[in-house]
Amino acid sequence: MVLTGAVLMSVTGHSRRRVLAGAAGLSVASLAGCGFFDDDPELPEAPDALQPLLDEALALAAAYDRAVVTEPGLATRLTPLADDHRAHAAELARLIGATLPSTSGSSAASAGAVSASAAAGAETVATLRAAEQAAQKTAVAACKAAPAERAALVGSIAASRATHAEALR
């Protein structure tokens, strides 16, 4: 819907500073750059509630990339799914005002967001599928908890992850 797109875009500008309580993934990495605030431990900005979803999208894209390196025959099937995750990451980064890591360094940085089996470098279609199903659950919970202006985007990401699990059956 054209209208929805326009609303989302206008919302983007206002939500950069949105900080929601209860963000699960307070990661060391995201605070590492905040030495500026070291003198005042009360002040470090909590990560956005959607940061875990963004980390997960990058980790999944990297997992697909590794799987394709191991088994080039799977490229046709897996590359579009990796591209979907990168599109999700780009939209989420825009929405929360995050900077995406460069592609080359992203896999190590974000691997923690995906289950250990999928991050271990031995991705198979089955482990990728399990990771998609877990990631879908994260996104469903995030959609239910999201404020109205974020619900549609996060919902689409949840649905996309579900279709990935289906495509890997």
Partner: peptide, 8 residues
């Protein structure tokens, strides 16, 4: 698959 199901 589509990257954003539901988005026209």
């Amino acid at each position: 698959t589509l990257p954003f199901p539901g988005r026209a």
